[in-house]
């Protein structure tokens, strides 16, 4: 174990792990941005009304329900094999990004929906009476209030999501966990390596979780007038 520690605390090895952590952050950032945008579109479509959009609504519901009920690992393998079928030399990084985006969009859509539906009905009725269009209603009445509900849960989800990206290593994508596996394969004590990887994930996840908790407390405070 002491040998393992010595082998680990070398600039080159630590840089290797650090680059892995960078990739983990990149995967998370892409997944979250796409998830937030696509999740909003899905939730917007899903909470809409009118029979013209019914097929769209069903499609959005189906997408959300299906991808929330398939394990990320299975989604990842499916995307991987499907990509290999369509593009012979598909980049593993983009395979992982696609799988991550599919999952995060589905989960974010549910969070967004809960946010959009948190606005009191009376306000929506008032806006409709004032002849707001659906988009105006969402932009000027719903979103300014809904984001306070959405943001804490979205961050709580992102905290869980960072940890799921570790599975991308299983598809051969270079990120933190993959770096750990590579070092273990190179003969460094797996106990030390995976211990270090665990610490690194903790170092990413914990501040984010703390920030989420802080926002939750901060945003649930009632708004008071004046400064």
């Amino acid at each position: 174990m002491i040998d393992g520690l010595e082998a680990l605390v070398k600039p080159s090895t630590l840089m290797f792990l650090l680059r892995g952590a960078g990739m983990t952050l990149l995967l998370t950032a892409i997944g979250c941005s796409v998830g937030l945008l696509a999740g909003f579109v899905l939730a917007y479509v899903r909470t809409g009304s009118g029979w013209v959009f019914a097929p769209l609504r069903w499609a959005a519901t189906l997408f959300v329900e299906v991808f929330r009920r398939i394990p990320f690992l299975v989604t990842l393998f499916l995307v991987l094999y499907a990509a290999q079928m369509v593009v012979p030399r598909a980049s593993l990084f983009w395979v992982a990004v696609t799988a991550i985006c599919l999952m995060s969009s589905a989960y974010m859509a549910e969070i967004m929906r809960a946010g959009l539906q948190s606005v009191p009905r009376a306000q929506l009725d008032a806006a409709i009476v004032l002849n707001f269009s659906r988009w105006q209603l969402t932009r000027m009445v719903v979103l300014p209030q809904a984001w306070k509900v959405i943001l804490p849960s979205a961050i709580a989800y992102i905290v869980m999501f960072v940890k799921d990206t570790a599975l991308a290593s299983q598809a051969g994508v270079f990120e933190l966990m993959f770096a750990g596996k590579a070092l273990a394969n190179r003969g460094i004590d797996p106990f030390v390596v995976f211990g270090a990887v665990l610490l690194a994930y903790f170092a990413i996840s914990w501040p984010l979780a703390r920030f989420g908790r802080y926002l939750e407390v901060r945003l649930s405070r009632p708004v008071t007038g004046g400064k």
């Binding site: 174990m1 905290v159 599975l167 797996p190 106990f191 390596v193 665990l198 994930y201 914990w206 979780a209």
Partner: peptide, 23 residues
């Protein structure tokens, strides 16, 4: 609670399965 909710399950699993045998 802090430790468990901030650690990835997959890494823990790997740690238990591949790391502990060395001890």
């Amino acid at each position: 609670v802090t430790l468990t909710t901030n650690s990835p399950l997959f890494v823990i699993l790997f740690f238990l399965f591949n790391g502990l045998p060395n001890c």
